[in-house]
Design a protein around this nucleic acid. Structure first.
Lengths: 268, 268
DNA sequence: AAGAGTCAGCTGCTCTAACCAACTGAGCTA
DNA sequence: TAGCTCAGTTGGTTAGAGCAGCTGACTCTT
């Protein structure tokens, strides 16, 4: 039943299956499964359940919703994939953290798939990050608390140390922390999580797919410049610094991406 | 087994269940289900399957992955929730559109839940939109093709007509189209989809939860101002126009949000 | 009596088997 | 020829059984 590369071959009705699915606006599956998901979501909303609350057990949901165990489980699996519930074997089902973790996963997959198909999906993701951070930096300039400035100073210092250290590279975690700390003072949790999600997805794909050469000293200098610009309340300079930083990543990205031969394996 | 409000009461072991789940880094469920999902994803990536491609049928996946139909279906349900596959009753399973639709859903739920819990989640979502659009507008000023400018002109004209028309309100679809068309020329599909996702989630929550009063003439004037600023290549003016537009939405949002008594029903 | 091991009873996880529902295509009927 | 039915495909749903992770209380040992 399987072709040479595991490709699917269906003898009795090969042509008809080539039909592309017609969009009937009926995404997300059939009525019942969708309905169960909605009812569980409604349960969470209506009872104002916070993250971590206990949800009914599978047998209880079966009885309450009047469906079989299997349907309940499929609905819960879908909700789990969206981060709405969290399932723990032997414990029970809980209201999920509602984090952006599922988005990271979806975005990562989409970017990897697009990359392998020859699209510039990684570049698009970078542009997205650039857009958000550029739009935020103006609000930041001059209004960063002293404590955050000190923390950012320490992070850039650490970058310097890492660049001069044995590895000769700035650790990814340090870069991530810098960008996260920079926008923390805005007091917008969603913003922070989305930015981290974009960063995570970008970083995952970049390290997995393309081997980007980087000059760690340039990285350090650019982060320092961003920090100094923000400290001195210079909006224009801050925006320019951010753009330069991303421009740097972009140029480093462009060369290898076009030349790179996608590796045949994907093991995420 | 159920309390007065449908709250769960478990007689034999009530105290132990109050334990919050310990984070073992094992999100997304047990090993096997997770593994099946990964293998299906690997199949899509390795064979470079584009959106709409036929995936193996459930029996074929059972055999190939060596698991039961139930497990296959649960994995597919989770992947469907992430937009990675699309399941069509009676047809088969296909590679999904990889759109941002699941993100809209997750974001909407998160925002609704946060709103009901008294957080300013809707405002956070608006700030996110503002950040992205502000960061993009500079790249746009002066580089918009004439065709897009004409289309935007027509959209603002339509807004005027709708504002003066019977309803006296600018239709949501027109606003959506304006923002979508504005950033289309950047040639970044991801960017466009993310912006639309944010718009959709914001709009869904706003119309469902808070009844925002709006002066349609102000809305029209602000969109016209954005368009004119972009047309005249005036970056500073364009940024100011965007900020004013979002500032307008924000102020209209702030008053009712704090005063609003959340309705007890959630029916999405 | 204190400690350790076992066991019953929760929880979710997986499998098997059967049937239902949506859809297609070929062959039959009028 | 036009329309229908029917077999065979696909996913959707139900049912029942047993497995696996976890807790608390009971029991046996020391």
């Amino acid at each position: 039943m399987s072709g040479p590369n595991g490709a699917r071959i269906r003898n009795p009705r090969p042509a008809s299956r080539r039909r592309l699915p017609v969009d009937k606006g009926d995404r997300y599956g059939c009525a019942m499964a969708r309905d169960i998901q909605e009812r569980i979501k409604k349960l969470i909303i209506d009872q104002r359940l916070p993250s971590g609350s206990v949800l009914p057990t599978e047998p209880e949901l079966m009885e309450r919703l009047g469906v079989s165990r299997n349907s309940v489980r499929e609905a819960l699996k879908a909700l789990q994939a969206m981060g709405i519930v969290e399932i723990r074997h032997g414990f029970g089902t809980y209201v999920g953290p509602m984090s952006m973790a599922p988005m990271i996963e979806g975005l990562t997959f989409r970017t990897v798939a697009g990359h392998y198909r020859g699209e510039d999906s990684l570049l698009q993701l970078l542009e997205l990050r650039e857009a958000v951070e550029t739009g935020l930096i103006a609000r930041l300039a001059g209004s960063l608390p002293a404590a955050d400035l000190a923390e950012l100073d320490a992070l850039v210092d650490r970058m310097d140390a890492e660049a001069a250290g044995p590895g000769g590279e700035v650790r990814a975690e340090t870069d991530r922390a810098f960008h996260a700390t920079l926008y923390r003072c805005l007091g917008n949790q969603l913003l922070g999580e989305v930015l981290e999600a974009f960063w995570d997805a970008f970083h995952k794909v970049r390290t997995d797919l393309v081997d980007v050469p980087q000059d760690p000293r340039v990285t350090c200098r650019q982060h320092r410049e961003i920090l100094d610009a923000v400290r001195s309340s210079d909006v224009v300079r801050a925006e320019r610094a951010i753009r330069e930083h991303f421009g740097n990543i972009r140029t480093r990205l462009n060369a290898p991406v076009t030349a790179a031969v996608p590796r045949p394996t994907y093991d995420r």
